[in-house]
């Protein structure tokens, strides 16, 4: 706000004082929100680190198992068994609120199947296929868990970033400018008061003389 645009009136001063009070209150609340979000973020970060580690481990295992399956059974047998899978895993997406941030809550169904629910028979397949299927089911579950945690983490990071920007804007731009304008109006009003006093004194002296 440029000072030349400020009208040095008492009502403007009252208005500015109200704005400053509101900005300071907003600043304090946003600072508390930012700190709260950072705390939440660190909690989620720990969880994300664990789930990412688990995801990498399960991915490595699944890749190893498919290589083993291809080596022992061959891709043709594996593809043929894979064709028997009828039920496709599904995910349900809900949302929850962490300090005003809407984050996803993902739940899955039909991912982990028992040996007898996979659709292939036991007499035409071997255990290496079971192990491969299990490792891929574990991987899909880890991906779904990771997706929830990492999306939460990203959303929290975005919110922390925007809150930080608002806090900084209030701290270094809005409040100083409003304070400066208030001081300016105060100074101008004092100046006008002094001029008025001086004028009155002059008139009084002239009428006496």
């Amino acid at each position: 706000m440029a000072l030349r645009d400020v009208k040095p009136t008492r009502s403007e001063l009252i208005n500015l004082k109200r704005k400053i009070k509101l900005s300071e209150r907003g600043y304090n609340i946003l600072k508390m929100k930012r700190d709260g979000l950072i705390l939440e973020f660190f909690k989620v970060l720990d969880e994300a680190r664990t789930t990412r580690g688990a995801l990498e481990e399960k991915y490595g295992k699944a890749v190893g198992m498919i290589a083993l399956s291809n080596t022992i059974e061959g891709t043709l047998a594996l593809k043929s068994a894979a064709l028997s899978v009828k039920e496709i895993p599904t995910i349900q997406l809900k949302s929850k609120n962490i300090m005003g941030v809407v984050v996803p809550e993902i739940s899955s169904s039909k991912v982990k199947k028992g040996l007898l629910e996979r659709g292939y028979g036991l007499l035409g397949t071997t255990s290496v296929m079971d192990e491969t299927a299990t490792s891929y089911e574990d991987l899909v579950e880890a991906i779904i868990r990771s997706a929830e945690i990492e999306t939460t983490m990203k959303k929290l990071l975005d919110e922390i970033e925007s809150t930080k920007r608002r806090v900084n804007a209030l701290e270094f731009k809005v409040i100083p400018e409003l304070t400066e304008a208030r001081d300016f109006i105060k100074m101008r009003l004092d100046e006008m008061e002094r001029e008025e006093l001086f004028r009155l004194k002059k008139i009084k002296a002239r009428t006496k003389g």
Partner: peptide, 13 residues
């Protein structure tokens, strides 16, 4: 049922 497992087992038996 959408599952061929029983069919597969019965064929091999």
């Amino acid at each position: 049922s959408g599952s061929f497992s029983s069919l597969e087992n019965e064929l091999y038996k």
